[in-house]
Write a protein that binds this DNA or RNA. Structure first.
Length: 294
DNA sequence: AAACCCGGCAACCGCGATGCA
DNA sequence: TTGCATCGCGGTTGCCGGGTT
């Protein structure tokens, strides 16, 4: 006999998670850490299957998640990684700390795909579309010209980028080097990149004043919280002693060093506590984390 | 103001890989 | 070694909110 089934699927709830369910799941994982997802719903008192709990946690409740739109650099990385890895969203996500595969996948399908098509790039092959009409721009502006070279980050030079051991097993959608970059170099699509770079400017990312960045002191967190963080094996978790002096925008330029307790994260958890009004999925706040209430 | 349309995103589904008994 | 449960991934669905008619 093998293992027991993960769930009997009888009487299990489906659909959107309620605040109460989120609360139970968070409390359970904060107390016990992540181990066997099969047992999580039963022990946490949830009428969900373990799979659903895992998904909810990894895609929505995980404390190290970034929220909001992908930054310009993140989009560039996604495009370049997609060119190399194809639709392997989890691999792509592993190079973007704080982002989930689901989030990247959604962003790709809803935003990036359209942008690439709009400029005549096939989002599947990353090559110029055969019938693409290249727009010519009479007055290319210099800053964007410079950014052309950055559209596809030299991922292979990224210290955090780990090329796959099975890299030679390229998916159909992949090619040896970034075709986008090649296209730029051979000027196949150069003119249109002026327009795309305008589109890739992320002006919706809020600028957060440095004095509003909350960084809980390590000593103020309970031992339980510390263990919890360790249990998560969070990538790139660093608490910079100089964080309060760092403008959050530095993260835009260096997303791969995102700190766990960034402002988005803190605010993201604020919505978890008070059930009165606002987002119904409210369970806990940053102070609870700070003082080890969980 | 109501109906309709559309885009974004959370969540589900199914499948392959992995690992346990 | 084999069978089966679990995990993780990618594709897809369906709900919801905002915009348009």
């Amino acid at each position: 006999m093998g293992r027991q089934p993960c769930c009997d699927k009888v009487g299990l709830k489906k659909g959107p998670w309620s605040a109460e369910e989120d609360k139970k799941l968070i409390n359970f994982i904060l107390t016990n850490g992540q181990f066997c997802w099969r047992t999580v719903p039963k022990l946490a008192g949830l009428l969900r299957c373990g799979k659903s709990c895992r998904l909810r946690w990894t895609n929505y409740l995980r404390p190290d998640l970034k929220r909001g739109l992908l930054s310009e650099d993140e989009e560039k990385m996604v495009i370049d990684l997609h060119a190399q890895l194809g639709n392997r969203w989890s691999k792509i996500a592993s190079n973007l700390p704080g982002r989930t595969d689901n989030e990247i996948k959604n962003h790709w399908n809803t935003h990036i795909k359209k942008k690439l098509k709009k400029i005549g790039i096939d989002p599947v092959t990353h090559k110029p579309l055969p019938n693409a009409v290249v727009q010519t721009q009479t007055q290319p502006h210099q800053p964007c010209q410079e950014q052309h070279q950055k559209l596809c980050l030299p991922v292979n030079q990224d210290p955090k980028f780990e090329p796959e051991s099975d890299h030679d097993k390229e998916p159909e959608t992949s090619f040896e080097s970034s075709t986008l970059t090649e296209a730029i170099e051979d000027k196949t699509i150069t003119p249109s990149f002026d327009s795309i770079m305008d589109e890739f400017c992320i002006d919706k990312v809020p600028i957060i004043e440095s004095n509003k960045i909350l960084v809980p002191h390590a000593s103020s967190t309970s031992s339980k919280s510390s263990n919890f963080i360790e249990d998560l094996l969070l990538p790139d978790f660093e608490l910079s002693p100089n964080n309060e002096n760092n403008n959050i925008n530095s993260n835009v330029n260096n997303n791969r060093s995102m700190a766990l307790w960034d402002d988005d994260f803190i605010n993201g958890w604020d919505f978890l506590v008070n059930d009165d009004g606002g987002d119904p999925r409210i369970i806990m706040d940053s102070k609870s984390w700070n003082y080890g209430l969980f």
